[in-house]
């Protein structure tokens, strides 16, 4: 009888302790959140997350580089030859198979983030074995569609979210 009573008491205390510990843990979690969250991009950075680029002065075969979110973005006006090369490439030859048409909105314009997918260097334009880009850091070759062809990089150059605004402007982001 006496033992039973004790048992009852102890389970009740355990229940109270469990509830309190849970409530306490939730609170600590909630308090940690702001401290973690403050390291994320702040609202002024987020507000600048999209830029508009004037492309009316870019001639065929020319490439411009703009800064977006602190990274270079390559905007290339491709020649007929470039486009043809990109289209004719067999999927079997690609390390990261992707059709050229999946990588552009208008065939003439290629927009890619100029950051090598290997370790983040900036590839140089018009170089390499596939007349696209060549990364000097560890020797990755990209083709005229910004796809990885040779070297240590695992994936193609990333295509950012962008859209054409009118006929001579691109909005990135």
């Amino acid at each position: 009888m006496n033992e039973n009573k004790n048992k009852d008491k102890s389970t009740r205390r355990d229940f109270l302790t469990t509830v309190t510990a849970t409530v306490g843990a939730v609170g600590v979690g909630a308090a940690v959140l702001p401290v973690i969250s403050q390291m994320n991009p702040d609202s002024s950075v987020k507000a600048l997350a999209s830029i508009e680029v004037d492309i009316s002065k870019v001639k065929e075969g020319q490439e411009i580089t703009v800064l977006w979110r602190g990274k270079p973005v390559f905007i290339k006006r491709r020649t007929k030859e470039d486009i043809l090369k990109a289209k004719e490439t067999k999927m079997a030859d690609l390390k990261d198979p992707q059709e050229d048409k999946a990588r552009v909105i208008k065939e003439e314009w290629l927009v890619v983030i100029g950051v090598c997918t290997h370790l983040g260097c900036v590839p140089a334009g018009g170089q390499g074995d596939y007349s696209g880009w060549f990364c000097p850091c560890h020797g990755s070759h990209y083709d005229t569609s910004g796809r990885i062809r040779k070297g240590p990089a695992p994936t193609n150059l990333e295509v950012p979210k962008y859209e054409f605004v009118g006929s001579d402007k691109i909005k990135i982001g």
């Binding site: 702001p34 969250s37 403050q38 002024s44």
Partner: peptide, 10 residues
């Protein structure tokens, strides 16, 4: 106080 996430709180 204005832009940083929860900056005002911190």
């Amino acid at each position: 106080m204005r832009d940083v996430n929860f900056g005002w709180l911190i």
